[in-house]
């Protein structure tokens, strides 16, 4: 795989956006089937629904950000590190 494609795949925004969208959907759906005992456990709050909607919103925001402002790969700058002269070679 060329480097730019790999870098696009590893855009952290895709990763966070994707995982949070998936979790958000799972929890939101679970939130519609919340049992009374589960609601009571969480102090009367339907926490799965709220957490699901929150994660879904954050996930979609990251995906949107990635779409609006895609990753640009800048060319690697050629530089001679100042410390190079007395540094041993590491593999």
């Amino acid at each position: 795989m060329p480097q730019s494609a790999a870098a696009k795949l590893f855009d952290i925004r895709l990763l966070i956006g994707g995982l949070f969208t998936l979790y958000g959907l799972m929890l939101t759906i679970a939130g519609f089937f919340t049992s009374d005992s589960a609601r009571e456990k969480a102090s009367g709050i339907n926490i799965n629904l709220w957490l699901g909607l929150g994660m879904l919103a954050l996930g979609l925001l990251f995906l949107l950000w990635r779409r609006v402002n895609p990753l640009r790969i800048e060319p690697k700058p050629v530089e001679q590190p100042a410390a190079e002269r007395n540094r041993r070679d590491l593999p």
């Binding site: 456990k41 926490i47 957490l51 699901g52």
Partner: peptide
């Protein structure tokens, strides 16, 4: 405090 689902997260 956390019901199944939120507990998993």
């Amino acid at each position: 405090f956390l019901p199944n689902g939120a507990l998993g997260v």
